[in-house]
Each structure stands twice: as C-alpha cells, then as structure tokens.
C-alpha cells in the first residue's frame, strides 16, 4: 500500500517538475545548439572579440609598451652579432658608394688642377721640388681648395703662467683665457713626463683632432698656438713656422711679463694683421 502511494507522489512531482522547468529546458537546449554550432557561436562572439581587438590596438603602447621594449632590448643585446651580420653588407655598400663619389670628385679636381698647372707654374714647381725636396703629392694636395691649410685661430700664451698675451679667432671656441690655461697645463704635463727621460727638454708641437690640429711653437717666455684646418703639409708647416718666427722678432711686447689689456689688444691686432 505504502509503495503505491510513494509512486503516485513521485509521478506527480515529475509532472510538476516538467511543468515548472519546461521554459528553462528549452533555453538550455537552445544554448546547447548555439555552442554546438560553430557558425552560431561565431556570430555571437565575433563582435565581442572585434571590440576587444580594437581596444588593444588603441591602447597597445600604454598597456604593453614597457614589456615590448624590455623584450626588444633583451633580444637586441643577445643578437648583436646577428644584427651586425644583417646590416654590415648594407652599410658597406653605402660607405663604398660614398667613398667612390668622393674619390670621383677628388679625381676631377686633380684633373682640373693638373690641366691648369701643366704650365710654367708646374715646371717652376718641379725645379723647386728638386731643390727643396717637396713631394708631388704634397704640392698637388696643397693646390686643392678643400685641402688647403687654413688658420682658424691663433693665440700667444705666456709660457709658464698660461696667461693669454693675444689672440685672433675666426671660430667660436669659447673663452680664449681658459683655452690658454688648459693648453698650458696639458703642454706642461707632457713636457714634465718627457723631462724625466734622458733626452733633455721636449716640447709638445702638435695636437691632432679629426678635422683640426693645434700647432705650437715655443719661444723663451711664450708660445704660439695655431688652430689649423685642412691638410698640413711639411712645406705649409715650415711656412707657418717661419711666419711665426718673423712675428716674434718684430713684436717685442710679447716679452712683457705682466701684460696689460693694452698689450693684449695690441698683440691681438698684430695677429689679425699678419694671419687673417
């Protein structure tokens, strides 16, 4: 009796569950169909993904910038050789092309110069070259505008104190007084080092930078420092040296131990007159 009654209750509950959950079952069924169908699922998910992708695109540098930079740096450091292998041929080509162009231009200039100078001037040079031992290459280079030595600045500096006695400058190279002091300190340091050797007093004569050189000529109480640009051939150097010696012979005020502003002004004027 009891069992029959229980069966009835179960049946009635099942009917009730079917009635109550009918709607939900249909919904679950539909969702299952969407999940199972690739097209249906794509139709619904694609707009969400598109929005997300657009947002990442817009905010990529802010969100991932640091991580990407760190990763790129790491990769670059680890792949130095690889990068060099990849870009070297390209750089080599560019450098070769540039040098080729420059050599071409130089060749044209030399041709023009040779044409101009196969004349009396050329024969005059050949005779001088035989007498004074000037090389053809030196002479040709000195004839080309791009290689001609140019005095950019010239200074007269007291030998021990490094105080400026006069200057003439065409470039903007900062304070000439400080230049004089530092150059004297560098000169003194080098000379002190070599003084310890057995070869007697040594003088610093030239400081060589890429495009500029500082030529120095020492006298008893002072020295000249000329900032030069271009090719300094042996003959150009000798010419400048002679000119400086002549200047020193003519200007007795250079020996002033306590130069006044008038002395400096006078010497600077004379430098301009002779070396501009």
């Amino acid at each position: 009796m009891m069992t029959n009654h229980q069966d009835d209750v179960d049946r009635q509950l099942a009917i009730l569950r079917d009635i109550l959950l009918h709607g939900d079952r249909e919904k679950i069924q539909k969702l299952q169909e969407i999940i199972d169908s690739k097209d249906e699922l794509e139709k619904r998910i694609q707009p969400i993904l598109d929005d997300r992708i657009e947002s990442i695109k817009d905010n990529f540098p802010t969100v991932f910038g640091d991580e990407v930079n760190r990763e790129v740096e790491k990769k670059l450091l680890l792949s130095n050789d690889l990068i060099l292998t990849a870009i070297s041929p390209l750089m080599g080509k560019m450098i070769r092309k540039y040098i080729g162009q420059q050599i071409g231009e130089l060749k044209d200039k030399i041709d023009r110069q040779v044409k101009h100078t196969f004349s009396f001037k050329r024969y005059y040079h050949l005779i001088r070259a035989r007498i004074f031992g000037i090389q053809d290459s030196e002479w040709f280079l000195s004839q080309l505008d791009d290689f001609q030595m140019e005095i950019k600045d010239i200074f007269v500096i007291q030998r021990n104190s490094g105080l400026l006695l006069g200057s003439y400058s065409t470039s903007e190279m900062g304070d000439s007084g400080i230049f004089g002091g530092m150059l004297t300190a560098i000169k003194a340091f080098g000379e002190d080092v070599f003084k310890k050797s057995d070869e007697g007093r040594q003088e610093l004569e030239m400081i060589d930078y890429n495009s500029h050189k500082i030529y120095m000529q020492s006298h008893h109480n002072y020295y000249f420092a000329a900032v030069l640009k271009g090719t300094i051939t042996a003959s150009e150097k000798n010419k400048l040296s002679d000119k400086l010696i002549k200047f020193a012979e003519n200007e007795k005020r250079l020996n002033s131990m306590s130069p006044t502003s008038e002395d400096i002004e006078y010497i600077s004027g004379k430098l301009k007159e002779n070396f501009a």
């Binding site: 021990n160 104190s161 007084g177 400080i178 300190a185 003194a188 000379e191 002190d192």
Partner: peptide, 27 residues
C-alpha cells in the same frame, strides 16, 4: 677688471709631488 685664472690642482700629500710646471708663473 681682474681676470683670475684659477688652477685647481689634484691634491698631493706633499707639495713637492705636484708637477713643478703647474706652479711656474703663478702670481
């Protein structure tokens, strides 16, 4: 107008260790 050219020399425990040429011509 006095141009004071100041030379700041690296310190040494004794002055005779300083290169002599740095002192020359100093006022």
């Amino acid at each position: 107008k006095l141009n004071m050219m100041l030379w700041d020399i690296a310190g040494e425990v004794a002055q005779d260790k300083v290169p002599l040429s740095y002192f020359l011509g100093a006022n």
